[in-house]
Design a protein around this nucleic acid. Structure first.
Lengths: 215, 215, 215, 215
DNA sequence: CATGAATGAGGTTTCATTCAT
DNA sequence: TATGAATGAAACCTCATTCAT
């Protein structure tokens, strides 16, 4: 599996017809299942078989294996990022406590909705090509966090860019650790609380916080 | 690259003679170089060639490719963890601020001593087998952090285990982001400050902090 | 060429389509040719090339080299055994002389129909895995001989099982010797006569023969 | 394992010194053990290790692996053949019954003295190079049988050469079958009786037997 | 003489991708 | 458009053999 030029990673054709859409979804799901079962040793044939289509058909929708994996990762990560961004936008103008609550909640909820999918995708996400996608999505997310932070009602940030970057990057690790150690709803809730503490604590430290202190 | 049984990942023979040691080190360094140049598409022949030995020699020290990559990762990650652990032990009994300073400083220093090595190893670290090693090392580190935290002079932690886990997991992401975006000494210093803020802020939030404030 | 688990020796897919059947036959024939030319130092690539297909195709029908060789041997030995069994069944109820004639005739005919094939396959037949197949086939044959012997009109056998085993095992050696020394039709005929003598003589010795001699 | 020119199969140096003799014997024994444990997948290193010497030393006594295996086979087969030849010579002038008794007895005794050795050596005996040795020895044996047969007191053979060849070749198969199926002393005795019957019966059939019939 | 680290040709096998049907 | 047999480059790894120590 060598690296391909980035351009060749785009899906071969837009699945505009309904049937195509279904097929692509089936393939995505199949890829996840195989990933879960075999780790990174996925083969296109395995995915095709699991999806109930022929390899030929698979190659009608994806120019190559990389593109397939990248697409699967993008859909998953993109979904999580979208949810997080939405929450960030909704929290504009709030306090950093409310912001962190909203953001961590959205992130953890989205990431743990189907924990086994997240687990399956940690490996391919690190693969050379998907890696770029993950970074893009992270940047998109960081941007939203940044845009939110600067509207905080109770804090000002000197280095908002760096802060949002650190913030978003810092929550990924603990979340992964919890998911991979096979957490359940309860653990995920606890994680959420800790991530909020992590965020709030950090933001307090790096901001000229306007605490509700007297005088 | 299929998964191997964990047992087969151990080095084939201990490099006892001086010459062997040198050979193994050369192979490690070569592996890093090739990783840096080619990403995960390393081949054993490339590594051997770069190291100036034959494939046969390489296979005399490592039973298979996995074991080689795992060993390289282990050496690197282990070094970083060792440095961090040492710092943690030296900080027993201090305040959480001092603890975070010591720990973040040691971690970032060790991780960025040769940034290109860290960068090269992010990929193989995610590969199925090295992954386990990384987790082990992380656990070892978390243990040391835990042991340190419970001795904090100015804080008590209800869930010290979870806290140390979150703490250690949360600093990995930002560090990676900075390293991969090609940071320099200055950036690394800034990162350090932010990680300290992250840690201190988090620990304050989750602890019954004993602030030294009178009245 | 290490030993494989017996299960992995089965053909990978049944050649159901006509084209597949032809391909498999071509591969068999190619394997025999290469065996004849190179002895046991066959390589899968050689076989594929000789068959005019790619290695990949070869591996589509056989999971590994062992399986290929085993299949070739099985087809050959199986054919000889089948012919011998048929002859045995047709000779039920006859005299031991007639039985030996029928059996030796069938065996030698089948084995020497394409002497060069037999010659080519002596080596791989001894290889670890094919060995088991040869034994199975020998057992199948011994069973048929046994079933025939107990119906002999002019003899009774106290240890029919042992007798049939010895009988079948004893004719293999001389046949091989003759084939390997490059015999022709005439030699094969003479061999046949000697094997009949061998069989008849042996059966007379170990049976309570009912010779038709009066008085 | 490619074929070597026959000349390179000779031992590198005659083990004339006592120490050398011991070393060579140790190596032989080691080879048999490894053969027994691993089948044909013997490696020179394994043999050396088992023998407690270095590969280098092994190569001091044998020019290559083939030569080693060939020597092991030759020693074993040669021993069996020698014993058989001796028995044949001692039976000159006797009846065919006595001849067969003597010959089968010697052969089976020698071959089953250490059944596991015989079992271990069936595989390498078929390997390309040892094969030639086995044939030579078989020829040597057939010659002795021939020389014996022509002195039989109670039979004359029209095709003594063919007869002795068939005779010797026919006893190998049953013996192997019994040894490989894990026979014990009792089975070996029974085998002996059957081989005698096989031989006597055959010789009676193909000879103008001079039965002890009156006048 | 013994040692055993080093060599490297070459074998087996996989799997992404194509294209005739 | 779907199929899946065929392709073949290329990866991993072994092991007989050498030779400096």
């Amino acid at each position: 599996m060598k690296r391909k030029s980035a351009s060749s990673l785009n899906p071969r054709k837009k699945p505009q017809q309904r049937r195509s859409r279904v097929t692509v979804d089936t393939i995505f799901e199949a890829a996840i299942q195989v990933l879960l079962a075999n780790g990174l040793a996925v083969t296109t044939s395995q995915v095709a078989e699991r999806a109930g289509v022929s390899v030929g058909t698979l190659y009608q929708y994806f120019p190559n294996k990389q593109a397939l994996l990248a697409a699967v990762v993008k859909r998953h990560v993109g979904g999580v990022v979208d949810a997080t961004i939405l929450a960030c936008q909704a929290a504009h103008g709030r306090t950093i406590g409310e912001m962190c609550s909203a953001m961590m909640n959205a992130f953890v909820e989205a990431k743990t909705r189907r924990p086994e999918v997240s687990r399956a995708l940690y490996l391919p996400s690190a693969a050379v090509d998907a890696d770029a996608i993950v970074k893009e999505e992270a940047a998109r997310c960081a941007q939203a966090v940044h845009d939110m932070l600067v509207t905080a009602s109770d804090a000002k940030f000197a280095q908002a860019r760096m802060v949002s970057g650190v913030l978003i990057a810092s929550i990924v690790g603990p979340t992964r650790a919890v998911i991979e150690s096979g957490g359940n709803r309860a653990t995920f809730e606890k994680l959420k609380q800790h991530l909020i503490a992590l965020g709030v604590g950090y933001l307090k430290e790096v901001s000229g916080t306007t605490r509700g202190d007297p005088a």
